[in-house]
Each structure stands twice: as structure tokens, then as C-alpha cells.
């Protein structure tokens, strides 16, 4: 047994942060308890609910199944980095318009998985959206409005892209 700690560096939403963690500290707890990014949530311990989803080096991962030391040096994006209250990301706007959230606990993870889908596939079908979100559990919405929201956001982001 050892309580040695390791110094790691995480760049969270563009801000570089140094912290000391035990090797066993999960990334979700480093983000929430050590750095105060409480957007990502803990919902299970079996890598199945997706509430803890963040981007690590641009890809969605479940931060409850990654040690903080594994993320040393990585760029991490949490929901706090997606958009501000007065400047929402198109996905956030679409989730509100389409009523794609109820309790909102799964929403931060859902948004980050959806964001990754739209980065890879700007014009997904409904089936592709449903498949992409299979790792994010929502108990409130029945998913249909979430699918609507991702579709709406995709259309809007594509239109904005086209206008550029």
C-alpha cells in the first residue's frame, strides 16, 4: 500500500491545471472534487451510464473509467467548456428547444457524446444518432426528443457551415 501522490497536468476547457492525485483517483473525481468541474456526473460504476462523459484529447470517454494519471498531459473538455449561458452551443440550444432534457443529470454527458458524433458525421440519420448515444443512459426523456435535438443541431450547424 502506498499513499504516494503524483503530480499531473490537465488542460481543462483550455485552462492548464496542475494537481496532485493518488494513482487510484479516477478522472471524474479529479475533475469534480479536486478541480471543481461539477458538470460531469457520476451515475454508475460499471462504465454503462455515460453521465461522466468528457472529451479527452477530442474524443468522448467515460471519465469514471480512466485514472487521472492516465490523462496526464491531456486536453479535457467538460460541459462547462461547451458554451456559456449567454452563448450556448447549437447543441445546447437545440436540447432546450426540443425538450431534450428533463432532470438534466445525464445531459452533460449526452451533449459531449452528441458533439463527437456531429464532429465525425455532420448529417447523421436518426438511427445513427440512436446508435451513437447507446452509451448514455437517460431515464427521463425516452430519448426521442434527444434524437430530435441532435438532428436540429446538426441541421443548424451545417447551415452555419454553409454560410461561412
Amino acid at each position: 500500500m502506498t499513499t504516494d501522490t503524483h503530480e499531473i497536468t490537465l488542460t481543462v476547457n483550455g485552462t492548464t491545471r496542475e494537481l496532485r492525485v493518488e494513482p487510484r483517483t479516477l478522472l471524474i473525481h479529479a475533475l469534480r472534487d479536486e478541480l471543481g468541474y461539477t458538470g460531469p456526473k457520476v451515475g454508475c460504476e460499471t462504465t454503462l451510464c455515460g453521465a461522466c462523459t468528457v472529451h479527452v484529447d477530442g474524443k468522448p470517454v467515460k471519465s469514471c473509467t480512466m485514472l487521472a494519471v492516465q490523462a496526464d498531459g491531456a486536453d479535457v473538455t467538460t460541459v462547462e467548456g461547451l458554451g456559456e449561458a449567454d452563448e450556448l452551443h447549437p447543441l445546447q440550444t437545440a436540447f432546450q428547444e426540443e425538450h431534450g432534457l428533463q432532470c438534466g443529470y445525464c445531459t452533460p454527458g449526452m451533449l459531449l457524446t452528441a458533439l463527437s458524433l456531429l464532429e465525425d458525421e455532420p448529417d447523421p440519420t436518426r438511427a445513427e444518432i440512436r446508435e451513437a448515444l447507446e452509451g448514455n443512459l437517460c431515464r427521463c426523456t425516452g430519448y426521442q426528443n434527444i434524437v430530435d435535438a441532435v438532428e436540429t443541431a446538426a441541421a443548424r450547424m451545417n447551415a452555419a457551415e454553409g454560410a461561412d
Binding site: M1, P23, R24, L26, E45, T46, T47, C64, T65, M66, L67, V69, Q70
Partner: peptide, 26 residues
């Protein structure tokens, strides 16, 4: 050995595995 950790970490979180030393290949 720790590779991606998606087999090991769930086992460690549930108490099914509690290694004394973890060698990270990352």
C-alpha cells in the same frame, strides 16, 4: 498491466481486483 483499463478499472472499482502494483503502458 494497465492498457486502456476498460477491463481492469471496472474490476478494481467493484473490488474484484486490487493489484498492489499497476504498470501503465499508456
Amino acid at each position: 498491466l494497465l492498457a486502456g483499463g476498460h477491463s481492469l478499472l471496472p474490476m478494481m472499482k467493484s473490488g474484484l481486483a486490487s493489484p498492489e502494483v499497476v504498470v501503465d503502458l499508456g
